[in-house]
Each structure stands twice: as C-alpha cells, then as structure tokens.
Design a protein around this nucleic acid. Structure first.
Lengths: 195, 195
DNA sequence: GGCAATGCCTAATGGTGTTAGGCATATGAT
DNA sequence: ATCATATGCCTAACACCATTAGGCATTGCC
C-alpha cells in the first residue's frame, strides 16, 4: 500500500536529501527510514549497510555533478570554459551541500568506476584543449585544477575564509584567474618525462 | 592513584592519538576514555562535549602543523620555500593522518582565533616574498596555495588518484611547479582593485 | 485454492553521547 | 586533630544508532 515501494534508488535519494537538509553526518539509517515512512531495518533488504548507502550517495552526487559540468562547459573554451567548470562545482556545492560532502570521502570501488567520476575527469581534461599543454601533462593539470577547486570550496564551506577579509567571493575570481595563468604558463616537464 | 590526573591537554592528546591510530571518525569519548584507563563520563569534567574535544584536536593539529611549516620554510625563498611548505603539509598529513583530518572540519571560534591558524597563514604569506605579487594580492595567493595543497592532499588521501596513472607522487611535484609558475605569472588585478 | 516468495515488520543486542547523582580522597579552617 | 568542603572519578540511567534474527501479510504463480 506504499505510494512508492522501496528501491535502492529511492533510498539513496532520500539519504541525499537528508544530507542536504541536515548535514552529511546526520545521514543515519533511522533518519532515512523516517523520511521514507518506514522502519530502519527494512532498508537492509535493499542496502548492505550504512557505508554502502553513503557510497550510493557519492555515486549519485558524481552523476549529478558530471551532468552540470557537462552543460556548463559545452560550447566554451579556455578561460570561459575553466570558469564555467569551476562555477558548476561551486554552484553544486552550494545548492546541494550534503551531496557535495559525499564527494569528500574515501572512494570505494563503485565510486571509482562510476561513469560520473570518469566524466568529470574527461570534462576537466577537455577544458585543457584550449591551452598549450602537451598531452602528457594533461593528467597533472587535471589533478591540479581538481585539487584547487575542491580545496577552495572545502575551505570556504568550513568557514576558513569567514574570519578574514576580503570575502571569499572576491578570491574565487582571482583564483580562477590564477588557474588560467598557471595553465598558460605551464612549466616544461622535466627531462625524463618529455615525450 | 592515577599515574597522571586527567587534564584537558592529556585528553585532547589521547583523542589525537586515537584519531591517528584508528581514524578520525572513531574518535569517540568511549575510545578516548578507554585509552586513558578511565570511564567516559569522567571526561565531562574537563571537556564540554564531543564537539569541543574534536575542536581541541583541531587546535592541536594547527599548532603542530604551524611548527613544522615554520621549520621547513626557514631560510628558504621562492620555489624552494614553496616546496618546503607543501612538503611540510604532506609529511604531516602522512605521519598524522588523524590529526590532519581534524583540520578538515568546520572551524569553530577557538580554532579560528588560534595562534597555529594565524601562523600558518602568515608563513604562507611569507613564502610570497620571493614572488612579484603586489601586497594587495597576497590574500588571494595565500588562499590559492592553501586550497591547492589542501585539495590535493585530501584527494590523494581519499584514494582519488589511486585508480589512475601515473602515481600521485609524480603529480605532486608537477603541481608544485605549477603553483610556482602561477605565482610568477600572477595575473594583474582587475581595475577596481588595483592599488 | 494452495504455495512460495517478496517486503516490510517487531524484538533484541551492543555500542554511543550525555546527564544526574554518589563516594572517596585531598585540602583547608578551626 | 577534627571537621567541612571541594575535587575527581565513579555507577546508573536514558535516548539514539547500526545491525541481526525471525515473524507476518500480501502478492503472483500454478
């Protein structure tokens, strides 16, 4: 008689909603069950354990983020693409803070192999097309961009910029500028790694 | 008859040790009490609650990290200083993973005002002395460096680089190179913010 | 209609954070 | 020296959580 019978997808989505509403740490099986109008042991028919549920949220977030990034960078190049990529991350982190927190956890097998993860890497690499980097440097540049965006958003979210001036918004644009400059002035690879 | 009577410092240190040994998430009042040979309610005479304990670990970690960074960058400049700064972070994250995790949490009042936090910012700013950046850009550059280092270490720690080649170690040096290049080619500030 | 499987349920266990109140030992005053 | 007080850890208790075991009703198939 349930309006919607329990499925792994609906459970994961409920978990993600709980995360956005009350924080990722408060994603408890009880809370998710409550939201679904169900008792917590019932979830175990569909989900192995709490960790598997959180991993599911991670995969969901990767998928959603990949989709946003994909739309954002389409038809753009160079600085415009870089900015769109970064802003897509930032918008997602702001609109779905709980889901975004799910991205900051040890990656399991499922998340590592997920299409979303691969797409985000591929889309980031695509942004590099406009810049004068040898193919062999793309991995490093992708990791560089990812680290900076991720690190900035995390520190901002943790309030690390809240106690100093100027506001985090101002720095955000300067940091995209700096990333852009770094990609243009990308240092030559050392001897052993030149193609 | 206790060898050492309970103090807030000894409790926080025990908590940090638990974090390093078995992970930050497993820093539970019970576990800390066990390690101290004491029952968990006894801790409440010295610590407000679990959150305050974790905040204490954060402050401890900030202090220790500031000390290491301070030693590392002393007597160095430019790329050498930048690399020393980054490596100090990385070494600390590897040797004290639990303590380092304590740095990745919402910063409370105590952590924000702590000497460690201020020192780390100041030391990062000091590294910029060798680079041709106007004073007004230092804030942004400090945030940029911090974001990249932090982001990289977090992703590396979460295994984000484990499923792709080449190894994270190789990229690490390239990313320091890229940071160095970004600081040398630091983009000019926009109209409104020029001194 | 029987029958098995599905899907959620209740009950129970062990771990957690936290509060309330007890009891012994150390400390100070007279 | 004795007594009062305070300190510091204790036990008891509650609510919440993850997880397992086993029950019961509804469903779909023969």
């Amino acid at each position: 008689m349930k309006a919607t019978p329990l499925t792994v997808a609906s459970i994961v989505e409920a978990a993600a909603d709980v995360a956005d509403a009350t924080g990722f740490d408060s994603v408890t099986l009880s809370a998710v069950a409550r939201r679904l109008g169900v008792r917590s042991p019932s979830l175990y028919s569909h989900v192995k354990d709490r960790d598997a549920l959180l991993e599911g949220v991670t995969v969901l977030a990767l998928t959603e983020l990949a989709s946003r990034v994909s739309v954002a960078v389409a038809g753009r190049a160079e600085r415009s693409a870089l900015e769109a990529l970064a802003d897509a991350h930032r918008d997602y982190a702001r609109e779905s803070p709980g889901r975004w927190d799910a991205l900051q956890r040890p990656v399991g097998e499922e998340a590592a192999r997920s299409a979303g993860a691969r797409d985000i890497v591929a889309l980031t690499a695509a942004v590099l097309r406009g810049y004068p980097l040898p193919e062999s440097e793309h991995v490093h540049a992708v990791r560089f961009i990812g680290s900076t965006i991720n690190g900035y958003l995390r520190i901002e979210r943790n309030g690390g910029f809240a106690h100093s001036r100027p506001s985090a918004d101002v720095s955000w644009h300067r940091i995209i500028d700096a990333l852009d400059a770094a990609l243009r002035a990308w240092p030559a690879p050392p001897e052993g790694e030149r193609p």
